[in-house]
Design a binder for these strands. Sequence first.
DNA 1: CTGTTAGCGCTTTCAG
DNA 2: CTGAAAGCGCTAACAG
Lengths: 330, 330
Amino acid sequence: MTASKSVTLHDVAREAGVSLITASRALSRPDVVSAQTIERVRQAVAATGYVPNLLAGGLKSKRSMTVAALVPVVSVPQFLPTLQALTEEFDGAGYQMILGQTGYDRAREDALLSTMVNRRVDGIVVAGLLSRDAAMGQLRRLDIPIVETWDLTDRPVDMVVGFSHVKVGSAVAGYFLSKGWHRVGIATADDERAMQRHAGFVSTFGRAVPTATVPAPSTVASGRLALSRLLELEPQLEAVSCSSDGLAQGVLIEARARGIAVPRQLAVCGFGDADIAAATEPALTTVRVDGATIGRKAAQMVLARCRGEAVHERIIDLGFSIVERASTAR
Amino acid sequence: MTASKSVTLHDVAREAGVSLITASRALSRPDVVSAQTIERVRQAVAATGYVPNLLAGGLKSKRSMTVAALVPVVSVPQFLPTLQALTEEFDGAGYQMILGQTGYDRAREDALLSTMVNRRVDGIVVAGLLSRDAAMGQLRRLDIPIVETWDLTDRPVDMVVGFSHVKVGSAVAGYFLSKGWHRVGIATADDERAMQRHAGFVSTFGRAVPTATVPAPSTVASGRLALSRLLELEPQLEAVSCSSDGLAQGVLIEARARGIAVPRQLAVCGFGDADIAAATEPALTTVRVDGATIGRKAAQMVLARCRGEAVHERIIDLGFSIVERASTAR
DNA sequence: CTGTTAGCGCTTTCAG
DNA sequence: CTGAAAGCGCTAACAG
């Protein structure tokens, strides 16, 4: 009922007729306090309208119960399942997640990392690999768990869970080759990971491939444009590998608009296995990567380390798979 | 160079040969300190490897520089432009954003709200309207800015920026009527706001309408299913109003799969004007709502109040518009 | 422009 | 099981 200025644990303790610390324990470690005392404190909390201050606790206990999630751009659907899984896992453990957006920009990323460190986050999950600068900088020193995701390296800053983009590109190229398609093209965004898939594709394919590059983040609209450009480069195009399902969707739509039959005249492969991939007509062949599991694993690694456990498997390759659907059935 | 335990401002001050508070000011209010001193402190920071602790500052200054954003489900693309805008606006002002997921669940929402209050966030932005319980509870007492978004009410908990869902439904119904379509159907998710649009539609349409309801969050796949169900209810279906562009996309795909020509045999209207809407074939008529502006406005309202300014326009109706494209061109 | 003095609200020692 | 003391690292007040 007492609204007033600011009710502290002190007030609760007085109301309950116990000491400050007993009130504190009654709330945070009920197993160490008698049931009777707990009840008295509970009533005092209700009577005073007490609202705990996690900041104050964190200052002393050195645990903010906060973690950071860094993504290139919030509005890219690709990382959504990962963000979702992170939110759920962390929330379940009582941790809150601060969202940061790097904008595919290293300087911005460094700045954000600093901010998060200043906020004393208990862990960091980042989409992609951090720069070597970050690795050498304050991050190491602070000794908080850091999980890089959606990629793979044998020298992570701390931990990494993801898959190899080069191998993805290579696998798609191998798939195209096995189909006997040679007049192929690539529609790709210009972000680091997409470019790695591109490199993997070209390397396995054995020669340069007509490529339409669009700025990240890619959209359905840029997919339509990309197909147009590819057809200029290679009018006899047989198959297109796209760096995202959104892009692939744009390609499908543009093909339809031009009267190009998919898959009969043109095969299309996406990346991500988004919700939409299975639902398009024709259904989209794509590379499935398990974004949700990436998020879940990453959170679990961070949480384990927050509990003081050693994480032995510091590099986790979740792999990927090519999901064959109608868009390449030829 | 000194890694060691934990470098505090105290160490920096000693290194620089100034007092603690001068070091503090040199870093946070450089305009009040001599250039010479600032330089000395800067060097001391570099030499010691000092990392500020925002938690400690926040405890004293009562400003956490943190805000909360609450959404029903993280992985719903609908709120992405809003989240994006929020992230950018808040980041630009030096605030970090904690993400919370309510899962369309009031109890969960209350719990999250408490958590955020415990964390002493300086403001809260929530997608949708809060429950009256929340309005009456600790929220009011704490006196932090709260913006409800993506909806409208004349009695917001604090502030609100959005649009009327009832009016959206009504407008779409009016549009259908103006086209002379009477055998219409609705494909809708079962979340609160979608149901309001449904109610608005039915009310203006003047009678009950065949409706396929799918669980929120809706997907392209559930859109395909919804059209199937609607065709069972009304084989002569002329037009469908969908509660999201994703759902509408599913309807378009299912129609195509069934050999139903859009818009000739079936008109389709979506909601949201997502990236995809303009890119589909035929392009999708939809209701445009400006999610980015909602986010920007909401952030600005919170920030204004954080700066101690009074916000006079506490209820902002951003409206909406029907974007006519090929999917209803008949 | 700089310094001293007090805490912010809580939890960690260390004692009973 | 409970308590007293001692800060966590920083910044708001006030003084010089």
